[in-house]
Computed example of a mutant assay.
Amino acid sequence: MSAEQALKNSHVIAGIMLICQGLALVMLPQLTTKLLLLSPLETAQAVQYVRTTGLAVVVIGYYYCVAGKCGLISFFRASIIGRLTLLPVLLAMIHFFSVETPLIILGIQDLMTAMWSYACLKAYDKEQSKLKQ
């Protein structure tokens, strides 16, 4: 498999994961928050916010899938930077704003997929530099 195909696959798979997580939030918000060890959703408004967030996650996952299938290298570079900064920002939010600690699970997942994509991007860049010579 070429480095470009590995890079594309890393984003398609990350997108599929996001779509699945978003759909879980949309369809089963109470169960999903329970599985994430978060506080129970006590009001209908809280459930609506979780479902709305889930819908946004589905759309972002769709963008990742499309970018992966189309090979949008500039999107890959931008997304890796954003995904690498998610965990530190999440940790700051936990410290300063009392965001629930179990959300670290999502930050770690994003960090791991970002590191995978970063390794694929480095291999792609190396492959491209060899082709230019």
Rank of each mutant, 00 (worst) to 15 (best):
E4H: 06
N9T: 14
I13R: 07
I16P: 02
L18Y: 08
I19Y: 05
C20I: 15
Q21P: 00
V26C: 13
M27G: 14
L28A: 12
P29M: 00
Q30M: 08
L31E: 14
T33R: 04
T33G: 00
L35E: 01
L37T: 11
L37H: 13
L38Q: 08
S39W: 10
T43A: 05
Q48H: 11
Y49T: 04
R51D: 10
T52W: 10
L55N: 11
A56T: 13
Y62P: 00
C65D: 01
G71S: 09
I73K: 11
A78P: 02
T85Y: 11
T85W: 10
L87T: 11
V89Q: 07
L90V: 05
L90N: 02
L91N: 03
L91R: 04
A92V: 13
I94L: 10
H95D: 11
F96I: 06
S98F: 12
E100K: 09
G107P: 02
D110T: 14
T113M: 14
A114F: 06
A114P: 06
W116D: 09
W116S: 08
Y118R: 13
L121H: 06
A123H: 11
E127P: 08
E127I: 10
Q128H: 07
S129N: 10
S129A: 10
K132Q: 11
Q133S: 14
Q133P: 01
